[in-house]
Nucleic acid binder design. Structure first.
Length: 103
DNA sequence: CGGTTGACCAAGT
DNA sequence: GACTTGGCCAACC
């Protein structure tokens, strides 16, 4: 039985490079409505914030396209995403362009 | 088992 | 536009 947290990773793995997803979408993909549980799971993450193998935790952002998270700092996160080919707008991401949706 | 916490979100003040 | 409140769900103590 995989933990909720592991399920988050799996769905997150489905996000293609150069795209981002929101906690909301992940929760929806998991069939739950709790975005919080997703974020919480990531926080208590066994490895940390960065890829634990294949899980691009840095590709997860807020529902408004705003970066959320504290682990490594939003700044670093933004830089990382920019390197992936995502243009960040004043700390925000264009969900219209880069937002990846499940289901 | 109950209470607190949290990388959230939406609505109200 | 910034802050507060309520709600939601899973993990941790």
């Amino acid at each position: 039985m995989k933990s909720f947290n592991e399920r988050c990773y799996e769905i997150l793995r489905k996000v293609p490079k150069g795209k981002v997803t929101t906690y909301k979408e992940i929760a929806r993909g998991l069939g739950t409505k709790s975005y919080r549980a997703v974020g919480n799971a990531m926080n208590k993450n066994p490895r940390g914030f960065l890829n634990k193998g294949d899980v691009p935790c840095h590709r997860v952002i807020g529902s408004d396209g705003n970066l959320v998270g504290f682990a490594h700092g939003l700044k670093k996160k933004a830089e990382m995403l920019r390197k992936e080919g995502i243009k960040i707008k004043e700390g925000k991401i264009d969900l219209k362009k880069y937002g990846f949706k499940f289901r």
